[in-house]
Deep mutational scan, measured.
Amino acid sequence: MKTQEELTEIVRDHFSDMGEAATLYVQVYESSLESLVGGVIFEDGRHYTFVYENEDLVYE
């Protein structure tokens, strides 16, 4: 099982292909040891929320 830090790095790496991230945040109260819930805000103003669970990243 991966730590939240490892899950955060996986998510950060995925979003790095989409541009320069200004902020990546984790909603600790919705996350667990198995999943990471949060969002990313890019330098150009785009904002996505995400759920990373079971090696699957879903974002909108």
Rank of each mutant, 00 (worst) to 15 (best):
G45C: 10
S16P: 05
V26W: 07
I10L: 09
E20S: 12
T49C: 15
F15S: 01
T23Y: 15
F50G: 00
Y52R: 00
V58W: 12
A21C: 15
R46E: 02
Y48D: 00
H14P: 02
S35I: 15
S16T: 08
S35R: 15
E60Y: 13
M1K: 13
R46C: 11
V26N: 00
D13W: 12
V26K: 00
L24A: 02
D17E: 13
V58E: 05
A21P: 13
E20H: 12
Y48L: 06
E30M: 12
Q4E: 07
E5K: 09
T23K: 09
G19E: 04
V28M: 11
L24K: 01
L7T: 05
E20Y: 13
E60K: 09
V26C: 11
K2H: 06
E30L: 12
L57D: 02
E34K: 09
M18C: 14
V58D: 03
A21Q: 10
L36N: 01
A21R: 09
G45Q: 01
D44N: 04
V11I: 10
L33S: 12
E6K: 07
V58M: 08
S35L: 15
V40D: 01
A22F: 15
M1W: 10
D56S: 14
T23A: 08
E53K: 11
F42Y: 04
E9K: 14
E53N: 07
V26R: 00
D17A: 15
Y52M: 05
E43W: 08
Y52G: 00
L24S: 01
E55F: 12
Q4A: 08
H47K: 05
K2V: 05
S16R: 14
I10C: 13
E34N: 14
D56L: 15
Q4I: 14
E43S: 12
Y29G: 03
L36F: 07
F50M: 00
R46S: 07
E60R: 08
H14E: 04
I41T: 05
R46M: 04
V37D: 00
Y48F: 11
S31Q: 11
T3A: 03
H47Q: 04
M18L: 09
E53D: 06
A21M: 15
F15Y: 02
D56K: 15
Y59A: 03
E30K: 07
F42E: 00
N54D: 05
M18V: 05
A22P: 10
V26A: 00
E9N: 11
Y59C: 12
D13L: 15
T8D: 04
Q27T: 15
L36R: 00
V40Q: 00
V37T: 09
L57W: 05
I41A: 01
R46A: 04
Y59H: 06
E53S: 12
L36I: 11
H47R: 06
A21G: 13
Y25M: 05
Q27S: 12
Y52I: 06
F42D: 01
E20R: 12
E34P: 10
Y25E: 05
H47L: 07
D13P: 03
R46D: 03
I10P: 02
E60D: 06
G38A: 08
V11P: 03
E53Q: 12
V28Q: 08
L7C: 11
F15W: 05
Y29L: 05
I41W: 10
Y48H: 00
E5V: 08
E9Q: 14
F15A: 03
E30S: 10
T49L: 11
F50N: 00
L36Y: 06
E9Y: 05
D56M: 15
L7M: 06
A22E: 07
R46Q: 05
T23I: 14
E43L: 12
V28H: 12
H14M: 14
I10V: 05
T3L: 06
V51M: 05
L57Q: 02
R12E: 03
T8L: 15
G19V: 06
R12C: 15
E9I: 11
D13G: 13
D17P: 09
S35Q: 12
S35T: 12
E43P: 12
H14C: 15
Y48N: 01
R12T: 04
N54R: 06
D13I: 14
Y59T: 04
A21N: 13
V11C: 13
H47P: 00
V51G: 01
Y59Q: 02
F15I: 03
H47M: 07
V51E: 02
E55D: 12
Y48G: 00
V11D: 02
A21S: 09
E5G: 05
E53Y: 11
N54S: 06
F50Y: 02
I41R: 03
Y29S: 04
F15H: 03
F42T: 02
E60M: 11
S32K: 09
R46N: 02
M1C: 15
V40F: 04
G38Y: 07
E60L: 10
V51Q: 02
S16I: 09
S31N: 06
V11E: 03
M18F: 10
S16H: 08
S31E: 11
Y59L: 11
E30Q: 08
G19H: 06
E9F: 07
A21W: 13
F15Q: 03
Y48E: 00
E55N: 13
L33D: 06
D56R: 15
E20L: 12
F50R: 00
D17Y: 13
E5W: 10
